[in-house]
Design a protein around this nucleic acid. Structure first.
Length: 170
DNA sequence: CCCTGATTCGC
DNA sequence: GCGAATCAGG
């Protein structure tokens, strides 16, 4: 199984989506998680999970990284990811004439590869809208790809606090 | 023991 | 460039 351009695109998409290397390898097939990780490294996509990884420390290794790039932590769960992928109503996934959505198998090179839904689920599909030759996303998603998602404050539980306050108040 | 990614090294 | 083996952490 060679790493074709489309395969790499899919890899990058799923990797950016938050799928684990094993999950990506499983979805793509023909490759192991090691292969996925190796490719990810070669692509320079590494640095998603694992906040700090100085090196192996004790071992037959000598080279090391002098700097560590702390990145957003990744929620680690059991083969079920819940990525926060906004699904605006304005954007509707392209539905093929066959009735299928733009899935991993049907997506083409000139179609928007913006992931929609849970990659771990069966109904996971892509935007599929015309993305222009050589582009990975449609105009809308291309903007989103370059626009950092607005940071929402962590979900708080005002209910408990309010109850406590109400109790204290009277 | 299960999982995860990171790195090395032979091909 | 590729990926198994290995390492290291959760």
């Amino acid at each position: 199984m060679a790493w074709t351009d489309e395969r790499v695109e899919l890899l990058k998409t799923l990797w950016a989506e938050g799928l684990s290397a094993a999950q990506i390898a499983n979805k793509m097939g023909g490759v192991t998680r090691n292969a996925v990780i190796g490719k990810v490294h070669r692509l320079g996509l590494s640095g998603r999970a694992t906040p700090a990884k100085p090196q192996r420390g004790c071992g037959p290794t000598l080279a090391r990284r002098e700097e560590t790039a702390p990145v957003a932590a990744k929620p680690q769960q059991r083969q079920e990811m819940k990525p926060v992928i906004p699904e605006p109503e304005s954007i509707t996934a392209l539905v093929l004439d066959s009735g299928d959505l733009t899935t991993v198998a049907t997506i083409k090179n000139n179609m928007c590869k913006w992931p929609i839904g849970d990659p771990a689920r069966d109904d996971f599909h892509f935007c599929g809208q015309p993305a222009g030759t050589g582009k990975s996303y449609c105009t809308y998603h291309a903007r989103m790809a370059f626009q950092p998602p607005q940071r929402r404050e962590p979900v708080r539980r005002p209910a408990a606090a309010q109850i406590a306050q109400r109790r204290a108040a009277g």
